[in-house]
Design a protein around this nucleic acid. Structure first.
Lengths: 241, 241
DNA sequence: CCATTTCAAATTGTCAACAATACTGAGTCT
DNA sequence: AGACTCAGTATTGTTGACAATTTGAAATGG
């Protein structure tokens, strides 16, 4: 077949062998770094640095940054460059509001019909979480804790849902980094496990309720009260109110 | 040829709000064209044509197309260019599955707490729909019918929800164009109005149920059975199965 | 000592030329 | 006629250079 071009090898190739680095790969890596709290909010993402880090031309980096900015992971400031996003408290509340609406519905759906493989995957994941918690691997636990939500969406078998949740969870990771009050708040102990129990039992309403409560709990561990001045509110900052 | 860039578009007089054409504007316009069924699936989107259509350099067009492809509105084929997406039946089912999960939850949320202004806006919108239906303005009705869902999400006051729904609705517009069985199926008569009644009454469960039923109804007006060969299944197409 | 100005370096935004690939149509052969 | 080949053309992908802007620090003055 002459044609072709072999569009793109399966996406799975990305981890081990960076044979072909396209913008999707760069996006993935930055996603992961944000989820693991290795890229802090407001971190400058220099084009040059990224170019040499990935061994790639400037165009690829720019395209990746554009995609990331469209998803709210990165903020592009004209003539100043790209920075890891630092969501305001208002944005943070918006994101958690959205999660509180969408994710219980997804949990409900997953609980209603889940394949045995997906269930096994989720169980395995919760085991990893427990392990990380007991080993004191805080960084891993943070990442796994967010990944659970993505994998839950993945368990729906619906790539659209997975994509939506992934974006929200990644932005939430930035929010936790910014407004988290203690290191422990991020880790809701056994709530994931409880939720999984509801799912296994097929109790979709309980799963939805558990997800909702879980998100409330995460938010409670953050300092998102907007009584404090919104970022950039000069009057308050200068004490002129 | 000549090209680029310096055509006589100097409208410096009104710099206030007008035609600053950035990639977001291009994206918006293509979104609208798809929602109004003026851009059919698989339509070629030539870079040159878009450049002169928007009076803009190639870079802007390329960035817009990249964003659109990331959202599934456009498909980029290597060395062949950009085409309006034509979702397969499998993708179409995935999108409607996602909508059936997410949008009832959004409707529920909106019904639980909606501002009077938002309610008025939705009522106004339904009036426009009725008007278009009675005037036989099919094109307008198609657009308005989709826009209702976006405006409903907008009524949540949450830009994240709005964005998610907008993407799904736009892709659904392509799906309807591809797999719609009759012109009338797109227009669910008075279901939007009924849903608005539930919302006004604050009956969130009824609103959610109504939304779910509504989406089922839309899907029923499509031919999405996957018994037919998936696109590109050569064995079946050639009768070798 | 602090504030302001000025200038050089660095970074980003834009464009235009070049390379690579796909498409078109005429021509050729069986 | 139909299928195939093969240039020529058109379109996309990529690179590099240049312009515009910001950044940072040295120099200047109060």
């Amino acid at each position: 077949m002459g044609t072709s071009a072999e569009p793109a090898r399966s996406r799975r190739a990305g981890r081990s062998m960076p044979d072909r680095v396209d913008e999707a790969h760069i996006v993935e890596r930055i996603y992961s770094a944000v989820m693991e709290h290795r890229l802090p909010p407001a971190q400058k993402l220099s084009e040059l640095k990224l170019c040499e880090a990935f061994g790639v031309g400037r165009m690829r980096v720019r395209r990746a940054l554009l995609l990331l900015s469209d998803q709210g992971i990165v903020e592009l400031e004209s003539n100043r460059g790209a920075f890891v996003a630092s969501p305001s408290r208002t944005e943070a509340n918006e994101i958690f509001d959205a999660r509180s609406v969408l994710e219980p519905a997804i949990a409900k759906q997953v609980a209603a019909e889940i394949s045995s493989e997906s269930l096994a995957m989720l169980k395995q994941h919760v085991l990893l979480e427990d392990e990380a918690r007991e080993s004191g691997k805080g960084a891993d636990l943070i990442r796994l804790s967010g990944e659970f939500h993505v994998k839950l969406a993945l368990a729906s078998g619906n790539s659209v849902l997975r994509r939506v949740v992934r974006e929200l969870v990644t932005r939430s990771s930035l929010i936790v980094g910014l407004y988290g009050t203690s290191n422990r708040t991020v880790c809701p102990d056994h709530e994931h496990s409880d939720m999984l129990g509801d799912i296994e039992r097929g109790d979709s309403d309980a799963a939805a309720a558990q997800m909702f409560a879980h998100l409330i709990g995460i938010r409670a561990g953050l300092d998102l009260s907007t009584t404090r001045p919104e970022e950039g509110d000069l009057k308050d900052i200068l004490g002129l109110s």
